[in-house]
Design a protein around this nucleic acid. Structure first.
Lengths: 325, 325
DNA sequence: TTGAAAGCGATACCAG
DNA sequence: CTGGTATCGCTTTCAA
């Protein structure tokens, strides 16, 4: 049987109330009392029962994270930084994966909302209305997507695409393809939008291919379409797709970057290993800032302006020989 | 204000007790009552308050996962399968990362133990005694390490190393190096033990190098030592180290696999992409089986034999040209 | 089969 | 500054 507040009270020779105060509001009790209580608590290795506390305070000390696929190397880094930041704020992290299935998202969010103080939605795939319908119950912050009325943390995708297009343009490319990721992905739409603008202002032709799943297989599946197009370079929604393209090109004996250049997005670990040109996203920053916005949401009861943060990107270019266009 | 059991009772025209029974033990109430309660609950969108329930039942419906580094691609797959299996059992998953720091493990475990029904320790780095001191409070299952008295799920590392050694032997290698991972890693010790046995019976010379961190940087740091040794092949504790070796060899112009062959361990996604020979581990299986053992631990109150499961491995060979030894 | 009532453990209000 | 006490929402005896 675990130690309860009563045990501490008895040992310290004070009332429950005083124990509670001494531990929660140390400045509201006489130093001597506080000392006695602290000693007793330490001696008994007392830890307040979280369920009992939650029952009355209505808070759990836990935040929830929901994301489409932990198997996508993009997400573990985000989750890791979320957990690190949350621990500093003395919050535990509940985690749930939706397997890229937009239909399970809302129920999963609703279920988790009942056992946390706040939610972090990473790249949610559900429809806008569905997510909005969930607003209000618990503080929520959305990562990698902008959707009112939620605070959000996103990457400046348009600028990333602008940099990527400029990079390819400088290398002489004038016809580029874009292999789109999940239709339900806001980032995908945002990147495409940015890329359209960037190519338009540079007199580059954009060939749009997809949508495919944001995986190596998805990329491999799109490779033949890309090869059959007049594009001399291809930008992928993310690195996994880029790697799939590369894999299939190699299998077909299509020279990369000789015949076609590839640019990925995210800068996951493996991108550097295989010397893939990619647009680097500050994943740790997204997670950390997300937690910070969420903590702010959770503390301020009064409605205050929803903050939205946008992180910066940069192209990390391959170190290999430039393509011969 | 959320809906409580009282609201349901009022609407259904029965007592709290009956609501509780109708929902928890449907067979203990008259069908008609049950129907009425269920309707009322549905109409009001009633969901029992978890804190209140926990307070009395002592259970939280949550399991905890603790691991050294989510940034190591090995772990996300394990966590994902844990979460998937846990959801089927209607359990939420709390997650915590220890950053490969053995000293924070025990406190983190102790803290998490207070808010979950059971714990899954993935590749814990803490000392045996430290972990044993934590036994008993809550059901715990250890993954990737064997340590009494905990049930555990491990991979058959010795057999994996036997296969790898046989593979290299068949290719003509007689002097092989092993780049060791974290000293605190049980898997590292187990693999080394297996490799020693496998090389000894084959008249192969084993050169032991390390320990290094299980990362690309760790591998890169060990590469020069390997190159300076008489080894014609090198086995790494894991794929990240193997990739670091490969990267550094390439930078130095050392031909792989011409001058030296590399074999990794884990078969993370990127291994296939860069055509690395590696020993494949069934990560999803480890996570899934781990949850199943834990659920068993959590349900059986009586002490029963601790189960230990060992998963099988297989070499996934590179598809490239064989090395010229 | 059902209802009344006693807690589970901590918090917070209200007197003293 | 301290102690008594109601309360949070649910589960579970115990009678009826």
């Amino acid at each position: 049987m675990p130690v309860t507040i009563k045990d501490v009270a008895r040992l310290a020779g004070v009332s429950q109330s005083s124990v509670c105060r001494a531990l929660a509001h140390p400045d509201q009790v006489r130093p001597e009392t506080r000392e006695r209580v602290e000693r007793a608590a330490r001696d008994l290795d007392y830890h307040p029962n979280r369920a009992a506390r939650s029952l009355i305070t209505g808070r759990t000390g836990t935040i929830g994270v929901i994301l489409p696929d932990l198997g996508n190397p993009f997400f573990p880094d985000v989750v890791k930084s979320i957990q690190t930041r949350a621990r500093r704020a003395e919050h535990a992290v509940l985690f749930s994966d939706t397997d890229e299935d937009p239909t399970v998202e809302a129920p999963v969010i609703a279920a988790m909302a009942r056992q946390v103080d706040g939610l972090l939605l990473c790249s949610p795939r559900a429809a806008d209305e569905e997510l909005r319908a969930l607003a209000g119950r618990k503080p929520m912050v959305v990562l990698n997507r902008r959707i009112t009325p939620f605070p959000s943390v996103t990457a400046d995708n348009a600028d990333g695409m602008r940099q990527a297009a400029a990079h390819l343009h400088a290398l002489g490319h004038r016809r580029v393809a874009y292999v789109a990721g999940p239709r339900a992905s806001w980032s995908n739409r945002d990147r495409l939008r940015g890329l359209r603008a960037a190519t338009a202002t540079r007199d580059m032709t954009l060939i749009e291919i997809g949508n495919v799943t944001p995986t190596v297989d998805g990329g491999a599946a799109a490779a033949d379409l890309v090869a059959a197009s007049p594009a001399t370079a291809v930008l992928a929604y993310n690195d996994l797709i880029a790697l799939g393209l590369r894999q299939r090109f190699q299998a077909r004996g299509i020279d990369v970057p000789g015949r076609i250049s590839i640019v990925g997005f995210d800068d996951i670990l493996v991108a550097a290993l295989v010397d893939l040109t990619t647009v680097a996203i500050a994943r740790e920053q997204i997670g950390r800032v997300g937690v910070e916005l969420l903590l702010a949401e959770m503390s301020n009861k009064a409605d205050k302006p929803r903050k939205t943060t946008e992180t910066q990107l940069r192209v990390r270019a391959s170190t290999g020989p430039p393509p011969l266009v």
